[in-house]
Design a protein around this nucleic acid. Structure first.
Length: 471
RNA sequence: UCCCCUGUAGCUCAGCGGUAGAGCGGGCGGCUGUUAACCGCUAGGUCGUAGGUUCGAAUCCUACCGGGGGAGCCA
């Protein structure tokens, strides 16, 4: 009896069945059971790879009678030798010497069939859907991409930093925040006719972070090259296939870097992580290519192997106006680009990712660095960039930060912001200020793009959206 | 938050004013290596909820709740 479980991936990746001598132990969850005469076929999956393993149980196995009790969803353990499969459809199979039922799954109640389910139905079964092919593949690809992200930055000497999840500062412009409080909402302490925030846990209002950027800037102004990778929260009432109330964001922040350097970093970064996932998850990527997007792999390979298009906002507006397209929203210098405009640029105009830079200051955040005027501009612009990709639209938003104290203070005043809560942010400009830049990447959107999945709720294990926080 | 679509058996759907249906899944029985196996039999539903119109409502109307698509906000 083998002492340790062998992962299915390790068995299936063997060069020949002879490379796995002697009996092995396998464990997993039953996908389907077929029987024919005196032979039963138990197909199991253990999550280590997309492929199932077929266990052959015949009358020679003392536990043969057990197969009648096996149904989809059971967990089992089997010992036996790996052999070349006698049937078609799989290379190897296990000839069971013994079989054990670890946990049953009442077939009258177990909700997963061996047939295909809709993604909408599976969304209600977040505790069971990782057992399906699609969600197993998403979990593995998501894992590989997280690793690829760390690998990219670590190989470039970036420091992984952890910024707070609970924060008292509200990164301007990033949207509505969730309040984090220990106050009794049914009996709020009052002071001077208002809620007494001094009685709250932190002695002041606190929130769940919408971005680690401002804190990351602190470390960029000391460690030079840093990145964050963690959860962020937006209390926006957004009901789309691209928004979550809780999502993961990657935010590099780089000292002594301008917008051109940042755009290059963003491009290298995206190309690197797509190449990484193609290389490390070939079976899963084939699966997505077959069932979700027939051009997925081709698209990702193209991105990994070709340069991104660059254009300024002013050039983008000119291109949109010259396109002859009839857009629902008018295109005019000074207005933000709408989804339809972004999609035209990346999908129709260039057919690959586009980096749009130098947006009007009026539509961007106060911390973005003010430009000197360029030809064609019809107003102030800032050193901001958006990376647009087909189907998803904006996948990265970033900017060179305003490092000049006087300009920053002027911009904050124009935005109607009070200096006081930003005292430490301004201090960074008072003491050894340095040019720096950073961007934010929505992790789920990136995985969504890489898998071809239509809905972001199928990219995160336990999606938080308005009116939905089950599990 | 706005616009459009949608909610009928465990799942996917048909039925769209007159006695609630199919396929899959489940149960039972066949089948000497199967491949989302195959063949036969069978059980299973207050038609999202609450009102309203009507002799009669799954079907028409209203509100609310859930789901989907699109938009806005953004990552």
């Amino acid at each position: 009896m083998p002492a340790h479980r062998t992962r299915i991936q390790d068995l299936l990746s063997a060069e020949t069945s002879g490379d796995v001598p002697g009996p092995v132990n396998v464990k997993g969850w039953v996908k389907t059971v077929r029987s024919s005469g005196g032979v039963a076929f138990v197909q199991i999956n253990d999550g280590s790879t997309l492929a199932d393993l077929q266990i052959v149980v015949d009358a020679n196995c003392p536990d043969y009678s057990l197969v009648n009790a096996l149904t989809t969803g059971c967990s089992v353990s089997a010992d036996g030798n790996l052999q070349d499969s006698l049937g078609r459809g799989q290379k190897y199979e296990i000839a069971a010497a013994s079989l054990e039922l670890l946990g049953g799954a009442d077939p009258e109640e177990y909700p997963l069939q061996k047939k295909r389910h809709t993604l909408e139905f599976l969304r209600e079964l977040a505790h069971l859907r990782p057992r399906t092919n699609t969600f197993g593949a998403v979990a593995r690809v998501r894992n590989a991409m997280a690793f690829g992200i760390h690998k990219f930055f670590q190989e470039r000497g970036f420091l992984y930093i952890q910024t707070p999840i609970i924060t008292a500062s509200d990164a301007e412009g990033a949207g509505a925040m969730f309040r984090a409080t220990t106050l009794d909402l049914n009996n709020l302490p009052q002071a001077g006719g208002q809620v007494d925030n001094d009685a709250d846990f932190f002695g002041r209002p606190a929130f769940l972070t919408v971005s680690g950027q401002l804190e990351a800037e602190i470390f960029a102004q000391s460690m030079s090259d840093v990145y964050t990778f963690g959860p962020t929260f937006r209390a926006e009432n957004s009901n789309t296939s691209r928004h979550l109330a809780e999502f993961w964001m990657v935010e590099p922040e780089v000292a002594f870097c301008d917008l051109d350097g940042l755009a290059q970093l963003a491009e290298d970064f995206l190309r690197s992580i797509f190449a990484h996932v193609l290389e490390t998850c070939p079976e899963d990527m084939d699966f997505f290519n077959r069932f979700y997007d027939k051009e997925l792999i081709q698209t990702l390979e193209d991105i990994a192997n070709s340069d991104f298009e660059r254009m300024t906002y002013t050039e983008a507006v000119a291109a949109l106006q010259a396109s002859g397209e009839s857009f629902e929203y008018p295109v005019e210098w000074g207005a933000d680009l709408q989804s339809e405009h972004e999609r035209y640029l990346t999908e129709r105009k260039v057919g690959r990712p586009v980096i749009v830079t130098d947006y009007p200051s009026r539509i961007k955040a106060f911390y973005m660095r003010l430009n000197s005027p360029a030809p064609g501009d019809q107003g102030e612009t800032v050193r901001a960039m958006d990376v647009l990709v087909p189907r998803i639209g904006e996948i990265i938003g970033g900017s060179q930060r305003e490092e000049r104290l006087d300009v920053l203070q002027r911009r904050m005043a124009e935005a109607g912001l009070d200096d006081a809560p930003y005292w430490w942010y301004l201090d960074l400009r008072r003491y050894g200020t340095a040019p720096h830049a950073g961007f934010g990447l929505g992790f789920e959107r990136t995985v969504q793009f890489a898998t071809g999945m239509q809905n972001i709720r199928d990219i995160i294990a336990f999606p938080r959206t308005p009116r939905n926080a089950e599990f």
